[in-house]
Design a binder for these strands. Structure first.
Lengths: 230, 230
DNA sequence: CGGACACTTCGACTAGCATCGAACTATGAA
DNA sequence: TTCATAGTTCGATGCTAGTCGAAGTGTCCG
């Protein structure tokens, strides 16, 4: 019975505190570097690297190189679901209760994903831009000329973005919505504009709070569908 | 960061091969004695006792004394759901799937998941019920009036189910099919009917074996799609 | 280039824990 | 009461795996 049920190996993988810390740090769907995950887990870099290699080998994580960084994200929303289910179980063990306050709802509505907008609002943003023909493509996103004109008009330095090494557009799978939102340099620039215009502000944590006026302005600029009233 | 996220402790609990063996042995919802579980896990009695005490302390199991025996069962269908979800994750890890005997095939066709039907047949059941409009919803399932009438007609005491504390409908992610099947009180009641009607019987282990006549009756009651001929 | 940074690999150490045998408790049967 | 069975507790043992420092590899930047 040494082989045991398959379930044991994956559960043991999640069961180490350091790895569990890393996984929970990744639960919001962002990709983090090895260093960031090491800090999140409270271990040194070599230790984190070893853990991440194992999680990757088990296909719980997806790795992506970017220059000298290595970004890890949850392989799949399915992984996040299982982690959430485990949290549910953990609650009934009599351990400390996890607050499920309004902050959680806010997090799903709009949050920062690295440096761009995620959550319900972020997914709606990409969908709206695509529908208006300002961004094209499915997995590989591109900006057609009319879209480029729109973004320039919106106050974004497209010249600058295009010169930089970072990809202008990037899809990013949204953990709470299970659909893609807009990442990349353009995604970051858009969020910058929102914040600079005062349409939204960063709350402590990852929450992005849009004001009523900000939502109105958003609708004005991008169309009604981005933030349906009610 | 020593305490780590709550998730780690419960995952570590499941992550030990001996404990995982015990938990999977209990996945059919029956209660087993310490000795039986020790044998299922392939460890001695003292070892099993110690493991069970820990699982019990974490409220993953419920214990019940009966004379000089002590019976353990899963504390809750929710525990079974999480275990199934973990099996699903384990599948994609490409982990060792050594034993692929005929029994494994039967297990994928139809098995018991705590107290309701899982496997190919269970997934087909839920899909068929949804298509016929007898169950509605995606993650949160509900029973519309026409569905309720159907189940009452099928011999299920919907009044009783609705009064009880247990949710009537619950999705449960199927590890072999990677789609949801029907859990909750209604899922359990349906399986009860199938067994009572003699359409299927419980084989040793978790296998549910449908007879030829049983499959015909199933098609009659729920539609062709639930068990396509061939 | 050369230096800084991000990460990986290696080797050694250590702590935790799963395991078992033996002794102990409790229940049931004769 | 006495014996048998079921389970628990305890102490000792051995192995796994998590941890870190140091050294190695690759990438970016000036």
């Amino acid at each position: 019975m040494k082989e045991g049920p398959v379930i044991a190996s994956v559960a043991a993988l999640i069961g180490d505190p350091a790895r569990a810390n890393m996984l929970t740090a990744l639960m919001d769907g962002r990709a983090l570097t090895v260093s960031e995950l090491a800090e999140a887990a409270g271990v040194t870099l070599p230790t984190a690297s070893s853990h991440l290699a194992r999680l990757d080998a088990a296909n719980l994580l997806a790795a992506e190189r970017q220059g000298r960084h290595r970004y890890f994200r949850l392989a799949d929303p399915e992984v996040a679901r299982v982690l959430e289910a485990l949290m549910g179980l953990a609650e009934r063990t009599g351990a400390k209760r996890v607050r499920t306050g309004p902050r959680d709802a806010e997090l799903r509505t709009a949050r920062i994903c690295y440096d761009h907008l995620a959550g319900e609002r972020g997914v709606a943003l990409l969908a709206t831009l695509k529908r208006a023909g300002r961004i094209a493509g499915e997995d590989e996103l591109t900006v057609p000329p009319e879209g480029r004109a729109f973004f320039v008009d919106f106050g974004i330095d497209m010249d600058g973005l295009e010169k930089a090494r970072r990809p202008v557009c990037k899809t990013c799978l949204d953990w709470s919505e299970r659909r893609s939102h807009l990442g990349g340099a353009l995604g970051a620039a858009l969020l910058d504009r929102f914040l600079a215009e005062g349409w939204a502000r960063r709350d402590p944590g990852r929450v992005i709070a849009f004001s009523g006026a900000g939502l109105g302005a958003l609708r004005n600029a991008f169309g009604e569908a981005i933030a349906p009233a009610g």
